[in-house]
Design a protein around this nucleic acid. Structure first.
Lengths: 140, 140
DNA sequence: ATGGTTGCAAACACTTTGCACATGA
DNA sequence: TCATGTGCAAAGTGTTTGCAACCAT
C-alpha cells in the first residue's frame, strides 16, 4: 500500500534528516488549503504536540523552500506565506475583507511569457500572480 | 505653459500640504524607471539637499499610497517598493541576476478576471503580477 | 561517532507609534 | 492661528545569526 504523500520519503529525497518538526511543517503545508505563515506553522506544530522554537520554523521553511518542498507566496501585507511544494501551478484570490484565500488555477500567461521572450529576450523562470478583491460572501 | 506633472498641484488635489519632503518623494518616484524602496527615497532626498528622517519618508509614502499618488509593488524579497501613482497599468520583469527591472505593459488578465467574476462571484479590484528570470544581458 | 538539527539569546532590517516642536495655508 | 507635518526616541514585527547542546543516521 502506497501513501500518496510520504513526508518522510520527501525529506529523504532531498537529503534532509527526518525530524518531528520537519514532518509537522510538511503535514501542515499539505493539509492547508491556503498558504501559511511561520506563525501559523508554529501554532500548528504546538497544537499537534510538537514543541519548536520560532527560529527553527524559519530554518525549516527556508530549507524546504530551497529544496523545492515548499513554495513562498507573497500577499499584499508583505508577509511571507508558504504553500505545499508539489501542488500543480496555481495562483490565489485574496478577499480584502474576510481574508479568505482561494486557489485560481487557470493561468493564461504562457503566451505573454513567450512573447516577452521573443521581443525582449527575457528568460522567464516564473511569475507571481495574485488577485485581490471581495469574495462572494463579503459582496452581499 | 502647462507642466506635464505638477507635483504641487497633485498634492493639493488630494488635500495634502506642499512640503519639500513630499515634493522630493514625488519627484523621485516620477523620475525613477523602476519602483523605489524607502531607503532609495531617503537617499534621493538627501542627495537633493532635502534632509528628512526615515520615519517621515515612511509617513509620506504611506499617505501618498492612501491617496493614490504612489503605488506599492512587492517583489520576491518581501521589501515594499513604490511606483509613481499615475502611470498606466503595468507590471514588472525582474532579472534575478542583475536586479534590473523592466516594465511590462501588455496585461492579458482581463478575460480571466471576468471569468472568475462570473464563475466564482469574486469582485476583483486589482491584481499583482511580476515576472522573474534572466534578462537578455545576463543570459549571454 | 559525527555531522546535521535545534534552542536560546541576541542582532538585524523594516515599519509604526507617541509626543513635543515646527511649519504651511 | 491652527491643523498638519516632522524629528527623535522607542517599541513592534518578521527574520537571521552564533554558539553550545542534541539527536538522526
Amino acid at each position: 500500500m502506497i501513501k500518496k504523500h510520504d513526508c518522510k520519503e520527501e525529506l529523504r529525497q532531498v537529503n534532509l534528516k527526518v525530524t518531528p518538526a520537519r514532518l509537522g511543517v510538511l503535514a501542515a503545508l499539505e493539509s492547508a488549503s491556503s498558504p501559511l505563515d511561520t506563525g501559523n506553522l508554529t501554532s500548528y506544530l504546538s497544537g499537534h504536540g510538537i514543541k519548536v522554537d520560532r527560529v527553527t520554523v524559519f530554518r525549516i521553511i527556508n530549507i524546504l523552500t530551497d529544496r523545492g518542498l515548499a513554495k513562498p507566496v507573497l500577499f499584499d501585507d508583505g508577509k511571507l506565506r508558504y504553500d505545499y511544494g508539489s501542488r500543480p501551478e496555481h495562483h490565489h484570490f485574496v478577499c480584502e475583507k474576510c481574508g479568505r484565500v482561494e486557489m485560481v488555477s487557470n493561468c493564461v500567461l504562457k503566451p505573454l511569457e513567450k512573447k516577452l521572450q521573443k521581443t525582449k529576450g527575457f528568460f522567464i523562470r516564473r511569475h507571481s500572480l495574485e488577485f485581490f478583491g471581495l469574495c462572494a460572501k463579503c459582496l452581499k
